[in-house]
């Protein structure tokens, strides 16, 4: 039988002694993530990236509780968990099912790791090259190709993998020199995981 049209992945891990399950399902317009410590879907929250002009460094998200307890903590947890999912998935919206016994910050952090292990990106096709989505400000095409070559070289050396940067980087506000060393360490810790 052919590959299912919907890709999904499942992971489970004990977090602070509580069995936690994650199911990630990829739709073209949504990433559906269920994070459960009760075995149920629980509270359904939709997290949508706001479309706005490109000059703002951190993307913002709107959260809406579709089903369940609409309390501030739900929004905070949902935003915290869904932001990186959305970014990794090319700014798609995230539908999040949350059924948590423990929503402490430490738990949320560990949950992010479990979600990462559940990521649906198809790595096999790009195994020789490791593409990085660099979470910096939306870039203006860099006039200096040299810089991105340098950056690739650096990343490749640090991660011992070949690297390709989808976009040349240029930080209009802060310039290269100030921001790059700092951002590079972030890039490399992400790439090296």
């Amino acid at each position: 039988m052919s590959e299912p049209i919907i890709k999904s992945k499942k992971a489970q891990k004990e977090i602070n002694g509580i069995p936690t399950e994650v199911v990630c399902t990829e739709f073209s317009n949504y990433i559906f993530v269920v994070l459960t410590q009760f075995g149920k879907i629980g509270t359904l929250v939709s997290v949508t990236p706001d479309s706005r002009s490109n000059d703002i460094s951190t993307p913002t998200f709107s959260t809406k509780v579709l089903l369940g307890k609409d309390e501030p903590l739900t929004h905070v947890c949902a935003k915290n968990l869904a932001m990186f999912i959305s970014q990794e998935a090319g700014n798609r919206s995230v539908l999040l099912g949350l059924a948590l016994k423990d929503s402490s910050i430490e738990t949320i952090k560990q949950m992010k790791e479990v979600i990462k292990s559940c990521q649906l990106r198809n790595r096999s096709t790009n195994s020789s090259q490791h593409f990085l989505r660099v979470a910096v400000e939306p870039c203006i095409v860099c006039p200096c190709v040299f810089l991105s070559q340098l950056l690739c070289h650096f990343v490749s050396k640090q991660t011992k993998r070949s690297a390709a940067l989808p976009y040349p980087l240029f930080m209009p506000n802060r310039g290269f020199c100030g921001i790059l060393p700092y951002k590079l360490s972030e890039v490399c810790s992400f790439a090296g995981e």
Partner: peptide
């Protein structure tokens, strides 16, 4: 374990 399971078919 709790038993969240995923099934695909067409």
């Amino acid at each position: 374990f709790r038993g969240v399971s995923v099934h695909n078919f067409s």
